[in-house]
Design a binder for these strands. Structure first.
Lengths: 226, 226
DNA sequence: CCCGATCTTGACGACTCCTTGATCCGGCCG
DNA sequence: CGGCCGGATCAAGGAGTCGTCAAGATCGGG
């Protein structure tokens, strides 16, 4: 779930944002001043910060600087000041976007989505590593490690393993596996699966003939058990 | 040097941007329509795109979609439309920011700096220099050192190496490599990759026929191992 | 207009990978 | 007890991919 930290000293703005964000499935944290913003960011690990510049205790750029000292979380600045120099200062201080009040909720939400999307694409947020006591699978790097050493997989081997790992814990039918790896025209060539599951077990399992992770469900399909 | 692609069909806007950007040390490319924008992005490898939505030949969101199909370069939309739904559409289509005309040059430049900063910081590390026992790659300076001496790379060689180094440790598919270096129209010309990887290995690897850093993953792609 | 640098294209052997068939194993049911 | 079925294992042929070399094509600068 995406977490948003809303920082504003006007209760009605906080309230409106909280309602709109919560209704769209975001987790919402709030703070009413700069000190609370820094504390909330440190403790709540938000995915994006919506920051009003007119806070009672600190200057807006101070808050931005305080955040930027240790995090690259996207910051969307809200401000009543339409002056160009204010925008420039905030953006150069490290803000990601600047929206002037009064603002349209639709637009703010769209800018928020854009900021979150950007951060998730760029950052290592898609930390897609699945580990077992015997080996680890890194879905993003397309790498498999066993005893610290890299295991070489052929494209088809990787395709089979990837589908199973993405559906870890669940049963994957033979048909589904064939269609996702070999294409929609396949569905009955179960002998392919036997060959490739055997190869994967040889490369990954401690006892290939007694698999602990790449399990056969007779007559149904296969399952990756973590 | 940072490269900006400016897309607008109004010559005076293009001119104003070109002057202001060039004066601040940016390299400026221009295009007057959507087709030119896609071509310019593929050939010029800009670090950021400034895109007017009211182009004569294509809808704005089409241009955004055309870019987003193969690149994550930041896109700043310029538009005369102040309507909220336009902003939402553009941002959700994949734009990074939305500025309404008439705009302040200071503000646009600040937003541009913010977009570029984000993209470069959000990179795999933020570390612009990647070193191996055999050679050193400086992504910011676009230079490669080996035994203290600079290695001369052709533009295409550098393009390939840059993509691999930016994704160090991760596997880069041949399709991704082709599209990022040669443009979105390419994707199957794997012979190019064979030639350029061989050239890079000759220039950088101690034993070109036994690469330690520029690794081939048969059937899948290539990987830079640090 | 020529020249050098760079990019594209083609061809070849070496190697890897996919597919396929044969064989073996274990459980199930008649 | 014996046949049968789905799965596991093994080996080998052919298709496809990769590394390499070299020759054309293209481009930009002098």
């Amino acid at each position: 779930m995406t977490t948003v930290l809303v920082v504003d000293d006007e209760p009605q703005i906080v309230r409106a944002l909280r309602i709109n964000l919560a209704a769209r499935g975001y987790r919402v944290l709030t703070a009413a001043d700069g000190a609370g913003a820094l504390r909330g960011a440190a403790e709540g690990h938000p995915d994006v910060v919506v920051l009003d510049l007119g806070l009672p205790d600190m200057d807006g750029s101070e808050v931005i600087a305080g955040l930027r000292g240790w995090t690259t979380v996207p910051i969307i600045v809200l401000s009543a000041r339409t002056d160009s120099t204010d925008k420039v200062d905030a953006l150069d201080a490290g803000a990601d976007d600047y929206v002037t009040k009064p603002f349209g909720m639709d637009e703010l939400l769209a800018r928020l989505r854009a900021a979150v999307r950007r951060a998730s694409v760029a950052g290592p947020d898609g930390e897609a590593v699945v580990a077992t006591p015997s080996f680890t699978v890194d879905l993003a790097a397309k790498k498999v490690l066993r005893d610290g050493a890299e295991v070489r997989l052929t494209p088809t081997e990787w395709g089979v393993l990837e589908v199973l790992v993405r559906n870890r814990g669940r049963l994957v039918t033979q048909r589904q596996l064939l269609q996702e790896v070999w294409g929609p025209a396949y569905g009955t060539e179960t002998n392919y699966l036997r060959v490739y599951l055997a190869q994967l077990r040889h490369k990954l399992e401690a006892e290939p003939s007694r698999p602990r992770y790449l399990i056969t469900e007779p007559g149904m399909g296969y399952r990756f058990e973590a």
